[in-house]
Design a protein around this nucleic acid. Sequence first.
DNA 1: AGCTACTATAGAACGTGTTTCAGTTTTCGA
DNA 2: TCGAAAACTGAAACACGTTCTATAGTAGCT
Lengths: 208, 208
Amino acid sequence: MTATNRPRAANGLLTEDEPGSAAQRDRRKRILDATIALASKGGFEAVQMRAVAEKADVALGTLYRYFPSKIHLLVTGLARELERGLERLDRATIPGETPYDRVLQVLGRVTRAMQRDPHLTEAMTRAFMFADASAAAEVDAVGRLMDRMFAYAMHDEPTEEDMAIARVIADVWLSNLVAWVTRRATANDVAERLELTVRLLLRKDSRT
Amino acid sequence: MTATNRPRAANGLLTEDEPGSAAQRDRRKRILDATIALASKGGFEAVQMRAVAEKADVALGTLYRYFPSKIHLLVTGLARELERGLERLDRATIPGETPYDRVLQVLGRVTRAMQRDPHLTEAMTRAFMFADASAAAEVDAVGRLMDRMFAYAMHDEPTEEDMAIARVIADVWLSNLVAWVTRRATANDVAERLELTVRLLLRKDSRT
DNA sequence: AGCTACTATAGAACGTGTTTCAGTTTTCGA
DNA sequence: TCGAAAACTGAAACACGTTCTATAGTAGCT
């Protein structure tokens, strides 16, 4: 009968005006915290819906009312973490004289973050890549966050070309993330390939 | 007790010396054919192990003896299709004066192939991206096939730099495949982004 | 305070990937 | 040709994502 049976609008990714009552915002936070904790401990397969519900102290049905699938749950968690990371990036100026240097800086930072919590990285990467069309909004939000991250590393006001380059870098980054997660590439391989990619893309550009 | 209970060695991806008896090779082929057919008709979710087994006329247990998971099954199927496509590419010379032109040719071709069978594309892309470490060998084989495809489009004997560029293109291609599959990007978006990427990477290179 | 609509809960139930098992058939070396 | 080892079969069982149901709580309106 009801048009929507979700306690929050589908956008649900921007930090802005969180909808719902305080209790609902709290439940939502508990759910995402539980998700991250479980993912961090045991990766994608450890994020079991029953376990998340129990850890967040909500019923299984409630969990599904907040997040329609495990994929939505994990991708939303990824978006939250990325937003936090991006805020931290915004506050501190990225060191480096050239776009090339600054992009490498940022890449180094995210690569270290990835290594710091392999299970979490695995869970989120696989959820992101496995998502189907029903999670397109969430996935897209994450994609834009990544593009933005690299674009801002180049210039405060990225041009069209900056955005195009940032997107390519994000694509390569994702691909390498997947390779690292499946153990087809070491962290060193990833670092090398990223550096090579950035060199190919930014070889002559050196504006500040 | 037995060390290996698989009818074929784990490599299983190169066309070379298919192992096993004729009956085994035939079963294997029937299984992959059934997989492709189901994927083509209904995508990832339609590739149900029981359905594959029935369509291939083998017992469920036998299916699992040949392919240890749905992911292995689909990624192996993808590898087979890619090999076939690559053979076709090898036989016909790719038109185009410059590496830039030829890479765009190849990209246009695979993009059309992707559009021709959306369900199959969806099934294989998602399997490829969702794979975990246990399918690393299969996934890696597919990755190398894609790199090779783009590298050969540039030069018959790709240099190190050609290979690096090819890898970046393959990464961007994959990323766009995922975006297309989740309906975050149209085929046109994909074509545009690929062209832009290739332009960024090959802007001054024009050797034949 | 009482009514109504919405939200949360506990738990059963269902679907599909995966595993297991007992029994049969096939393969292959002696 | 015989017998053991390996492969195949059919069916049951299990795990986890997802859905459903019956009941209980809760918030807002009058």
